[in-house]
Nucleic acid binder design. Structure first.
Length: 561
RNA sequence: UGGCCCAUGGUGUAACGGUAGCACAGCAGAUUUUGGUUCUGUUUGUCAGGGUUCGAAUCCUUGUGGGCCAACCA
């Protein structure tokens, strides 16, 4: 209930794009809303893309419109089918179904014909200068550019040269098609931008049909226009491109799509650029694109984030034009909030410490009921085996505890959750002085649910019957970087956290977890939320820690230091 | 040394000329057989100067700070 209130509070106001849309609908400028999500298939989607997906698909949903998935595949040398597939999968996993799945490459013929129109109008020319020459001729933000001799080539000749470009008569980089706009514009993107370049490269969809490929600025706006996109939403760095976007559409006299820009998502303690993420994968700093430490959607899925939690996160970060760096704590809040309601509780002991209940009969076993989810009575109960030899978490015992420690210590009492109260009566150590085993006595009349002991203990800890526990591998993740903004470092890889992955090799779990399947979510009681990894086998389950539970005690310990 | 975008608590985001609110984080307390959850209370903010106005976070202006722009990338 309270979360619903939070939701409604979060959506009571309109973000600036929604305001524009409502105004457009009110004035009749548009009668429906058409958006699109336009990724380049040259990498895996990350949490920043998730914000864009939620925005674009969310807008369409909210206003009864449609949202396309359109691959911006105009550069054959960088794009691959593997990425195409993963992108669609990620969009769907997030909970959105594209109205249509389209490709900018679907429009190559149309784009080519429009380029011919532009040339005929004297608004584009073929330039044989080198990239260096062209760059020099463009001037600088403070110095206007200077025209070269190709700028005044007659349309007929440009037409013929463009034809040669298309027919493959020139090698890569021999010449380019440029728009003829304004070499003195303060907006560098208007200083006769490139429209087409020659690339004798195999395209993942059009094969070898083309050897000239349109640049972003020549492809994007027209693709929007073809799809009758009413609100073309992109990130801030495209603001200077808008003038060119409008120019192309205006010169062609086609459907008037409009571009609006919002601030992209930045998360602290991670990097978001595809280039850097690719580097992390290729150089082995992480295992793969879906290594649970990565900010990619596939990695977050593997780690145990749910689509709902990511959508909620996108809602909470908002949409505005201000540069921002979101605290990962908000992401963690969103997944805890979601999983707290849904995840089944299970007992797991990450670092086992043996406990012998000295006054419990050897060989005896009794089964004790415990709830699967206290937040959800319909989740039911399960039985846990209790016996003479148990395991508890090493963290739950201290020989010399600090103040306010209310777990187990010599002479201290604690409740084993859903079982009995025990008192620590002795400790066994190895030669090095490490505690290897502790001895306790249990209070028979303190059985959970029928406690007549009259004892009151502050601590409640989880446990496992030694004879019934099973081995498991549990992977514990910490932030991948040690600094808030690794991208601003001289070398971002130097700030990689060497302890971002810790594997609990000796972890033990309750028997119910043996049948777990990849992708299932659990709360390991008192530890955190965990998700079964695809590496799991019937013999040895493997879990990823999605996020720990909030740990007030850890905070208290820090304060005491 | 050109142009464009932005500026509200620690982090985000509202307030559309009329009481600066919400969320996360923090802090304090209550409840709790998860030091979880839940509940209650609470600290912290309009970048600076000038102007318009009865009244400015909001409009104008100057400055400051941050971001973006000169790839045959998107």
């Amino acid at each position: 209930m309270s979360t619903e209130n939070a939701h409604s509070e979060g959506t009571e106001y309109l973000n600036f794009i929604e305001e524009i849309i409502e105004e457009d609908l009110r004035t009749g400028r548009h009668t429906s809303v058409q958006t699109r999500f336009p990724p380049e298939p040259n990498g895996y989607l990350h949490i920043g893309h998730a914000k864009s997906i939620c925005l674009n698909f969310g807008l369409a949903q909210k206003y009864g419109g449609k949202c396309n998935l359109r691959y911006d595949d105009t550069n054959p040398t960088k794009e691959e089918q593997e990425y195409v597939d993963s992108i669609l999968a990620d969009v769907r996993w997030l909970g959105f179904e594209p109205a249509r799945v389209l490709y900018a490459s679907d429009y190559f013929q149309q784009l080519y014909e429009w380029a011919v129109v532009l040339i005929q109008k004297g608004l584009a020319y073929v330039d044989f200068s080198t990239p260096e020459e062209i760059a020099a001729q463009k001037g600088s933000p403070t110095v206007p550019g200077t025209p070269n001799r190709y700028r005044d080539t007659a349309p007929e000749e440009n037409l013929a040269e463009f034809e040669k470009m298309k027919n493959g008569e020139y090698p890569d980089g021999h010449c380019v098609l440029r728009a003829k706009i304004d070499l003195a514009s303060p907006n560098m993107h208007l200083r006769d931008p490139y429209l087409y370049r020659i690339k004798h490269a195999h395209h993942h969809r059009t094969g070898d049909t083309w050897c000239i490929y349109p640049m972003y600025d020549w492809a994007h706006g027209q693709s929007d226009s073809i799809e009758k996109i009413t609100h073309s939403v992109c990130t801030l760095e495209f603001i200077p491109h808008r003038a060119l976007y409008d120019w192309c559409i205006e010169q062609l006299g086609i459907f008037l799509s409009r571009q609006y820009e919002f601030a992209r998502l930045n998360l602290n303690y991670t990097v978001m650029s595809k280039r850097k993420l690719l580097q992390l994968v290729n150089e082995g700093h992480v295992r793969s694109w879906d290594d649970p430490r990565m900010p990619t959607i596939s990695a977050m899925r593997r780690r145990g984030y749910t689509p709902e939690s990511i959508r909620e996160f996108a809602k909470r970060v908002g949409v505005a034009k201000r540069e921002n760096i979101i605290d990962v704590g908000l992401l963690e809040f969103c997944i805890r909030e979601d999983l707290n309601k849904r995840a089944l509780r299970r007992f797991a002991v990450l670092n086992p410490l043996k406990v012998v209940i000295t006054n419990y009969p050897e060989g005896q076993v009794e089964w004790l009921e415990t709830e699967n989810n206290p937040e959800d009575p319909t989740a039911g109960n399960r039985s846990l085996a209790f016996s003479r030899e148990l395991y508890i978490e090493q963290d739950d015992f201290m020989e010399n505890p600090p103040p306010k420690y209310f777990r187990l210590y010599p002479g201290g009492m604690v409740r084993l959750k859903s079982a009995f109260i025990i008192e620590c009566t002795g400790v066994e150590k190895d030669a090095a002085g490490h505690v290897t085993e502790i001895h306790c006595r249990y209070v028979p009349e303190s059985r959970s649910g029928q406690d007549t002991s009259g004892l009151k203990v502050k601590g409640v800890i989880h446990w496992l019957s030694a004879a019934h526990a099973h081995r498991a591998e549990v992977r514990l993740y910490d932030r991948l970087f040690q600094v808030e903004d690794p991208a601003s470092e001289e070398d971002f890889k130097k700030s990689i956290n060497p302890n971002s992955l810790e594997i609990a090799e000796n972890a033990l779990v309750e028997p119910a977890l043996l049948e777990t399947k990849s992708g299932e979510h659990y709360q390991f009681t008192r530890l955190g939320y965990f998700c079964t990894d695809p590496d799991t086998t019937p013999e040895k389950p493997v879990f990823n820690r999605t996020v720990s539970l909030k740990d007030t005690w850890a905070k208290e310990v820090k304060k005491q230091e």
